[in-house]
């Protein structure tokens, strides 16, 4: 399968006046058409940074991201972990943000609402929804933003964090459909069990480095997982990042 996004030797550091924080170091990864990839790792291991780079909202400090999708809003969509909405749109309005009133686009909005099971709640105001419903609305918006799953990338940061099991199952089905139609789904998860359920492929990150990349059932083995999360336990008292004074 041809890759839709390829990371080659991607580094990312954030600098403030006194420190440089390395968020990602030498990431090599590729995400194939029709695949669902879970990025697992402890807190502050660089999962969100990797997603933001893939979404094109963050440029890597060094290295290259090659993508056929990353430059078009119709071919990639991103749902951050804790999004906010500054206007009180209705569910339907929010899902159709950025789309036109054309029939094809309206059909996409309908499909996306169906996919997350919110078609019956379309007139409800966003801010009166529960946290889980808000998250589903945002995923629906991302799905509706993409013109056609084929060749597109859907990036979700912890999409299941406030969903109940039934909602998780529904969303997983929707993501499978997206991947089957030729898209690529990349999602960050801290729950390795869920990742095994959802994803074909997985990337294990530790302190901004890839420690395993491959089929989900291989990467998410107990040995690797203990390495991924052990660090967090070992260094729970310190921050999981490297501090380096500016030169």
């Amino acid at each position: 399968m041809e890759p839709l996004i390829t990371f080659s030797r991607v580094c990312m550091h954030f600098s403030t006046r006194s420190v440089i924080t390395n968020a990602l170091a030498d990431i090599d990864a590729s995400f194939a058409r029709g695949s669902t990839t879970a990025i697992v790792g402890a807190n502050a291991s660089g999962k969100s940074t990797m997603l933001r780079i893939a979404a094109g909202v963050l440029a890597p400090s060094t290295g290259r991201v090659e993508s056929s999708a990353v430059h078009s809003a119709l071919k990639r969509a991103f749902v951050p972990q804790r999004g906010s909405c500054a206007a009180d749109f209705s569910v339907e309005e929010l899902v159709s943000l950025g789309t036109s009133t054309r029939c094809a686009e309206q059909a996409r909005v309908e499909c996306a609402l169906d996919a997350v099971g919110l078609a019956s709640r379309r007139a409800v105001r966003y801010h009166s929804l529960s946290g889980g419903e808000q998250q589903r609305v945002r995923v629906a918006r991302a799905i509706a933003q993409i013109a056609s799953p084929n060749g597109s990338v859907l990036l979700l940061d912890e999409p299941f964090s406030s969903l109940d099991p039934a909602e998780v199952a529904r969303l997983v089905r929707a993501l499978r459909v997206f991947a089957q139609e030729g898209g690529s789904v990349i999602l960050s998860l801290h729950d390795a069990g869920l990742a095994r359920e959802v994803a074909h492929d997985a990337i294990a990150l530790r302190m901004g480095r890839v420690i395993a990349h491959g089929r989900a059932h291989e990467v998410l083995s107990p040995a690797i997982l203990s390495e991924v999360y052990a660090h967090e336990m070992l260094e729970a008292s310190t921050t999981a990042r490297w501090l380096r004074p500016t030169l």
Binding site: R52, A55, G56, V57, S72, A73, R76, A77, F78, V79, P80, G83, S84, C85, A86, A87, F89, L97, G98, R138, A142, Q145, L155
Partner: peptide, 15 residues
């Protein structure tokens, strides 16, 4: 302006 109501990252990813 509609998209700007969303999160910065979300808006940027939406073009």
């Amino acid at each position: 302006l509609d998209l700007l109501m969303l999160d910065d990252d979300e808006a940027a990813a939406a073009g």
